[in-house]
Amino acid sequence: MRPTPTEGAEGLLALAREGDGEAFRALVEPHRRELQLHCYRLLGSLQDAEDLLQETLLAAWRGIDGFEGRSSVRTWLYRIATNRCLNALRAADRRPPADYRPEVPLPEPSHHRGEPAWLEPYPDLLLDGIADRAPGPDARYELRESVSLAFLAALQELPPRQRVVLVLRDVLGFRAAEVAAMLGTTEDAVAGALKRARGTMPAAPPPPTSVEPRVVADFVRAFEAGDVEAVVALLSDDVRLSMPPLPFVYEGVADVRRFLTAVALREGRRHVLVPTRANGQPAFGAYVADAPLMRAHGVLVLTVAGDRVAGVTRFVDNSLLPAFGLPRSLRGGLR
């Protein structure tokens, strides 16, 4: 007798092996979002993550007959996704960054090496429904910590194998034996890669405080008013401003003030910031006045530490806006 979907995962698996596409979709759909997030952590790019997710699901569909059930469906899917991402990282055939030319000359930056050119923000709306699992005793990062921009940027600096091991062990909580099986290596090799990776990662960001909404609201009012000094008053002494994929970083109040005055909030330039969230942080779709429309000006992500803004990251690629449910332009005047 043919198994039916009501018999659970085993029944769905049996139907999928017979070529039932609906059963296959029902089998993998509960894992879709977490697999996309996994690919994003490894690749740093939302668009690349979506491409690799589709590759993973296609490979799973084509290889469903070879799944022997020795692990859970979830672990099997993570094995496929992980190795697909590793292949992509080895190929080094990354999506070219957005072709962005500043409208005005930029001030000399504090230094010329920022986040990886391919780094993109991740909409919090895609995090809905993803469990904060951490089932293993060595799991170190909570969901909020493991999607922060600082964590993602540092992760991209690791060699691919170390990056994968850190995510599988410390973020997702897979056991060393499971990771070794996924990667076709030994538990000793996994332990060594994890030790090296841990030594380079930054400390987890502090949790948001009760004053964060006030700080963010004050920032929005000052930025939309074009008030450089009011924005600067909200910044930490070691504030950092960057604009991926441009390799320019402005650090410290003086350099950030200089950038705001000469570029972002230069005289006569006005913005509207539409709130959203990215990487567990306050974020905005940025729009600049260009009558009769407000034209898109990228995605702005804030890092708030205590009662100060410690980081401003503007992703200049306007093609990211639809992923946040935001339009390419706004009609109407300034607020």
Rank of each mutant, 00 (worst) to 15 (best):
H111Y: 14
H111D: 14
H112N: 13
E115H: 12
E115V: 10
E115W: 12
P116L: 11
P116G: 11
P116D: 13
A117D: 15
A117F: 09
A117C: 06
W118P: 05
W118Q: 12
L119Y: 06
L119E: 10
L119T: 11
P121G: 06
P123H: 12
P123W: 13
P123L: 08
D124N: 10
L125C: 09
L125I: 11
L126E: 14
L126W: 10
L127M: 05
L127S: 03
I130W: 01
A131H: 12
D132T: 05
R133T: 12
R133Q: 13
A134L: 15
P135Y: 09
P135G: 06
P135F: 04
P135S: 07
G136R: 05
D138S: 15
D138R: 14
A139Y: 06
A139P: 01
A139S: 14
R140S: 13
R140P: 06
Y141L: 08
E142G: 15
E142K: 10
R144Q: 10
R144W: 08
R144Y: 09
E145N: 07
S146H: 06
V147C: 07
L149H: 03
L149V: 02
A150S: 15
F151S: 01
L152M: 15
A153R: 12
A153W: 00
A154L: 00
Q156M: 04
Q156P: 02
E157Y: 11
R161E: 15
Q162Y: 01
Q162D: 15
L166A: 09
L166M: 06
L166C: 01
V167E: 11
V167Y: 05
L168R: 00
L168Y: 03
L168C: 07
L168A: 07
D170K: 14
V171W: 04
L172C: 00
L172N: 10
L172Q: 12
G173N: 03
G173C: 08
F174K: 09
F174R: 13
F174V: 01
A176E: 14
A176M: 08
A177I: 08
A177E: 13
E178S: 11
V179D: 00
V179A: 05
V179R: 04
V179I: 10
A180W: 04
M182A: 02
L183F: 04
L183E: 03
L183T: 07
T185F: 00
T186M: 02
T186P: 01
T186A: 02
E187I: 08
E187W: 00
D188W: 08
A189R: 15
V190P: 02
V190G: 02
A191H: 07
G192F: 02
G192P: 00
A193H: 13
A193G: 06
L194G: 04
L194H: 09
K195C: 08
K195G: 13
A197Y: 07
A197H: 04
G199F: 06
T200M: 11
T200Y: 04
P202V: 01
